[in-house]
Design a protein around this nucleic acid. Sequence first.
DNA 1: CATGAGGCCTGCCCTTGGGGGAGAGTCAAG
DNA 2: CTTGACTCTCCCCCAAGGGCAGGCCTCATG
Lengths: 269, 269
Amino acid sequence: MRFSIGEFSLITQLSIKSLRLYHEKGILVPAYVDDSSGYRYYNEANCERARSIKILKEFDFSLSAIKDLLDKCRDESDMLVQLEEKLERVKHKIDRYREISHSIASIIELEKECAMEESREFEVEEKELETILIAGHRMRGRYQDVGQGLGLVCKKMGRHINGKPMTLYYDGEYKEEDADFEACVPVRKGKDVDGVSIRELKGGRCVALIHKGPYEALRASYKKVFAYINKRGYKVGTPIREIYKKGPGLILKGNPKNYLTEIQIIIER
Amino acid sequence: MRFSIGEFSLITQLSIKSLRLYHEKGILVPAYVDDSSGYRYYNEANCERARSIKILKEFDFSLSAIKDLLDKCRDESDMLVQLEEKLERVKHKIDRYREISHSIASIIELEKECAMEESREFEVEEKELETILIAGHRMRGRYQDVGQGLGLVCKKMGRHINGKPMTLYYDGEYKEEDADFEACVPVRKGKDVDGVSIRELKGGRCVALIHKGPYEALRASYKKVFAYINKRGYKVGTPIREIYKKGPGLILKGNPKNYLTEIQIIIER
DNA sequence: CATGAGGCCTGCCCTTGGGGGAGAGTCAAG
DNA sequence: CTTGACTCTCCCCCAAGGGCAGGCCTCATG
C-alpha cells in the first residue's frame, strides 16, 4: 500500500507537478519520503486527503484556504462558516457573470439589428410613429453636448431602456450657441429623477430619412427631407427627432462612415 | 491636451502600473514619450482606447485578447464573432458556478439538519413510514461493499436524489460473506439503468433507533431494537433498513463518533 | 536661479496554480 | 549489469499587476 508519485497521480487525478506543490505547501504531505533519494511515497490516508482537496478545488477554494480548512476541520460541520462564505462569493460571481452576459448579449443584438440595415440605400419615406414613453433631459447650449445628456439619461434609466437614444430639437432653426434640445431614450417605465423627466412622446405621421455617415454630414440629409416636405406642402411639427440607430459603439468608437441616424419630422395635417 | 501618467490614471481609472504594462504590451501606447526622461504623455485618442480597454476588461477579456480585438476591429461589428464566443464562455462559467453553488448549498443544508439531531440522545421509538420511491442496486457479498453500491446509485441518479442513502438487508440473519442487500437512495423520479432499478418501497409501522457512532458499534443498537421488539412480541419484517443520516461527509471523512445511522425495522401486525 | 516636494522612471521580487524542460539520480526488470 | 522508465531538484514561464528601492524629472516657490 505504498504508491509512487506517478501511481498516486493516476489514482487521484492530480498532476505530479501539483502533488509536489501540495507537498511543498504542506497541504498533502506524502506518508513517507526516502531520505537518500527524495522519492515521495503515498498511502491510503493520503488518498482521502487528496479526494478532499480535489473537491475543495472544484469548489474554487484557493490552496491556502484548502490547507486552512483541512488543518482545522475534523468534520464537515466545522467548515460550515467557510462554506457559507464561499457560497456567498460564488453567488456574487454568478451575479457578476450574469451582468456581463447580459451586456454582451445586448451589444450583439444591437449590432445584428444594424447589420441588416447597413447595406441598404436610404430614401425619404413617410410613416406612422406610435406614442412612446421617454426619459428626457432638456438642455440648452451647443448641439455637441447632447452626448453628455444621453450618457446621463442612459445611466439613470439603466435597465428600463427600451430603444435607441435620440435627440429632440425644439428650435425651428439651426442655432450654433443657444440651442434648445433634449437628450432622450425610450423607456419601459421609470420615475422622474434629478434632471431627467419621464413622459409620453406623441406619435403621428412623419417624414423620415435614415442618414448614413458622420454627423457632420447630416445637413445634406436634412436638405433632402425639407425638400420633400416643401414639395408636398407639409407643415413641420416640432420637436424634430434624430434617432441614433448606430453611432459610436459601446466599446469602440467605430467608423463614422457607418453611423446610421434617422431624421424624423412629424407633419401636421 | 497632454496628460502625465498620473493624470491619465485618474481620468481612466486604470492604475499607473497597469498603464505601464499596457504600454509594454503595446495595448495602449502613449501618444508621446519623452526620449530623455522616458516620461509617458497621453492624449485624447488614448482616452478612448483606454475606455474600450476598461470595458473589455470588465467583460473578462484577457489583455492579449483585448490587444487582438483593438488591433483588428475598426468597429463593434468586427468583434461580433469574438463577442459571441465570449458570451458562450461566460455562460459556461455561470453554469459551472451554479453547479458549485448548488453543491455547496446542499452540503450546508445537510450539515445543518444533522446539527440539530447531533446533541440528542436517542431511544427506540415507533413511527409510521410513508411509501417512497427509491433507486436501488441489489448486491450480494460483504456488507462493507455497500459503499461502492451507494456511490454507483448516487452517481446514476444525480439530481433526482431526494433523501439520505440507505441499505436494505434482505437476510433475516447476520451473514459475513454472502449477504443479500441493496444500496438505495430515495429519488423523485428516474428510470432503470444498468444495475439500478427504480421502484416503490412500501411504508408501514416501524421500530426505529438512531445509532450514534461508528458503524462497527451498530450491533449494540441492533440489540436494543430487537430487545424492544421481542418484549412487545412484534414480528420483524424484511428488509431491515439502515439510513445513513450522517456518515462520512462529501468532503471530509469526518469523525465516526458523530456518525448517525437510523435502524428501521418494519413490524407486521 | 536654486531648492525641495512630489511625480515618474526602471528594475527587481512577489502573488496563484501550476506547465515545461534540463540535468542528474533511482528503481526494477531482463 | 544495463537499460529504460521514473523521479528528484532547480530554473524559467504564464497573467495582471502590487510593492518597493534608488534615481531622475518637473514645477512651483522663495
